[in-house]
Nucleic acid binder design. Structure first.
Lengths: 121, 121
DNA sequence: TAACTGTACTATGTTTCTTAATACAGTTAA
DNA sequence: TTAACTGTATTAAGAAACATAGTACAGTTA
């Protein structure tokens, strides 16, 4: 289910946060679906359970999951996600990348195409 | 000309690389225009010259600037930038952010709007 | 020559990330 | 009730990345 990219210079827990968010955005992980337990995922990835927990804590802080002691961690309802400031930040990041893409030779049409492909996932 | 974002958890040299690339993409820094010297920018930002140099070295590696001993550092020609693998990576990142934006409630039209705004800079 | 430029190097300190080893509390099924 | 799961917290240690400080050398320019 998961693979760590050793070439990625970002810390492991950050990669995990990113991975899980992508799975949620893509609806591969659905609402209230259970995430792997801290210990099992740590074993599967051969890393320390503390690192998994750090990722889960971050995901919970951002509102993407909720954890229940004794039961596990689960995907949150979309409504629980704080997307006020997040959408603003996202717009900035998107514009930054779009400027870069246009500078490097992409066309508006290329960007339109990317939007279409993103939607069909 | 520059400000460091203390809230930004990324290393300083990485913020600098990002800042300069944005200035280049926005054509605020034009071809062959000279960048601030390592020492003067370090003083302006109250950070160590080594940190500036690290950023410049990274920008040079990525092809965005070139440095001449005794003269200074300058914005490179667009043609010198290796954009083969960079465009591929950019597409992936854009799609990732687009999926996130759509998940959080943005519409296709919102994304179109962002493209327009990016182009008018 | 003096004052700039980039570049290189070593040493040091700080911060962040990761691991390791426990421990405790709540849930669940045998 | 017990055993085996869950999340969570804590402390200690090591490793890696980052930033600073100080010094030095080479090339350019007025």
């Amino acid at each position: 289910m998961f693979e760590l990219d050793l070439r990625d210079r970002r810390p492991i827990y950050e990669q995990l946060v990113d991975k899980f968010k992508q799975l949620i955005f893509s609806d591969i992980l659905k609402q209230d679906e259970q995430l792997p337990s801290v210990r099992s995922l740590a074993q599967e990835l051969s890393i320390n359970p503390n690192t998994i927990q750090k990722a889960y804590r971050e995901l919970e802080t951002q509102g993407y999951i909720y954890s229940v002691k004794g039961k596990g961690s689960f995907v949150n309802q979309l409504a629980e996600i704080d997307n006020r400031s997040e959408l603003e930040e996202l717009s900035k990041q998107l514009q930054k990348l779009m400027r870069e893409a246009l500078f490097l030779g992409m066309t508006k049409e290329d960007l339109y195409q990317l939007i279409e492909e993103s939607q069909s996932l």
